[in-house]
């Protein structure tokens, strides 16, 4: 299986349901996603589109009422869905790690940074001073000045941007193969956002890991990622190289999303574009395409038939896929 060696993560036909009082809620449906080695893949989509469910299934820390109904999640050639809990535990934090949105609630406020950074190396057989040295080196890599003495400080003694850089340092300390970043820049302002993005790019190339980057800031995705995945209501509607997807979006949802970005509207307006309508109820799915109710280009067949995934570019090395009837014509 050569596929598994090219891709750090390879998800096929993944569907996840949540059991709720109103019946089963189909949070993810038939998701196919590859994260190639050394690439940064961005995921965009509105809240409730299944981004968090996707993450929880990759790290296999799912809610109690979640049920995987179909699919495989291959990580470095092994299926995470059939893996033993012990094996999974040894992967988490070691081969894959995660950076969350809010650094303040990621870091423990009553322990020093140094203590926390050494603690998470518990699997390592090295001496404590060696571990400490490693942590200091990692802090230096994320641009924290005077790292050795700052290890003795508590989280509140750092600014928001520094805290986020510390969480990134902690996540990358074990040199994982995959870093999952869940909206790591949402809580930061523009100048710090750019700092974090530049730093992630640098670290990614020096460590050689892959990054799954979740965000709803389109500009950040455009700047950081190689590939982008657009999700809507639990399905992937479009995916491909960032330059291609953002330059010539094929799915009506992607097109609308890009139109709505206030940054892309050059002229000052008091009436910003929006996407009409609401996300469909995931426990009572429409028969046809999931985006039909809000689509400005819908035809009769969209209401009845589920669209299939089509390659937009035939034969190109970098594939651009879209799930829409209009593209199959």
């Amino acid at each position: 299986m050569s596929k598994a060696t090219d891709n750090v993560l390879s998800i096929r036909n993944l569907s996840i349901d949540y059991a709720t009082q109103e019946g089963s809620l189909k949070a993810l449906r038939n998701v196919d996603l590859d994260i190639p080695k050394g690439q940064i893949v961005g995921v965009v989509g509105e809240s409730g589109c299944g981004k968090s469910t996707l993450i929880s299934s990759i790290i296999q820390l799912m809610a109690n009422n979640a049920k995987t109904t179909s699919g495989t999640v291959f990580f470095e050639g092994e299926d995470l869905l059939t893996m033993s809990p012990t094996k999974l535990k040894s992967l988490r934090g070691q081969r894959m790690s995660i950076v969350f949105q809010d650094p303040m609630s990621t870091l423990n406020p009553v322990l020093t940074i140094g203590k926390q950074m050494v603690d998470i190396q518990y699997r390592d057989k090295r001496s404590k001073s060696q571990k400490r040295q490693r942590s200091a080196d990692m802090l230096a890599q994320v641009g924290i000045p005077d790292p050795a003495s700052r290890l003795n400080q508590y989280p509140h003694e750092f600014s928001g941007g520094m805290q986020q850089r510390i969480s990134i340092a902690m996540a990358l300390q074990a040199q994982p193969a995959l870093l999952i970043a869940d909206e790591p820049t949402t809580a930061l302002d523009a100048t710090l956002e750019v700092q974090i993005i530049d730093m992630l790019k640098e670290l990614q190339s020096s460590i050689g890991c892959s990054i799954l980057f979740i965000s709803h800031h389109l500009g950040v995705i455009a700047e950081l990622c190689n590939q982008v995945v657009v999700m809507y209501a639990g399905e992937i509607v479009e995916q491909g190289p960032v330059s291609r997807v953002f330059k010539s979006p094929k799915h009506p949802y992607t097109q609308k999303l890009l139109e709505c970005d206030p940054a892309s509207i050059a002229k000052k307006t008091r009436n910003l574009p929006t996407i009409e309508g609401e996300i469909p109820n995931l426990s009572d799915l429409p028969a046809g395409c999931i985006f039909t109710s809000r689509c400005h280009k819908k035809t009769a067949q969209c209401e009845e038939l589920k669209p299939k995934r089509h390659a937009v570019t035939q034969g190109a090395t970098e594939k651009h896929f879209v799930t829409c009837h209009l593209e199959s014509l």
Binding site: G161, V194, I197, A222, F246, S264, A266
Partner: peptide, 25 residues
Amino acid sequence: LALLSANPEVTNVGALERIALKGEV
């Protein structure tokens, strides 16, 4: 100037030359 230039955008049309701020707040 730094704030405006740091604003990541999808298209690079009209983007200012980025000014990097050094150091911390």
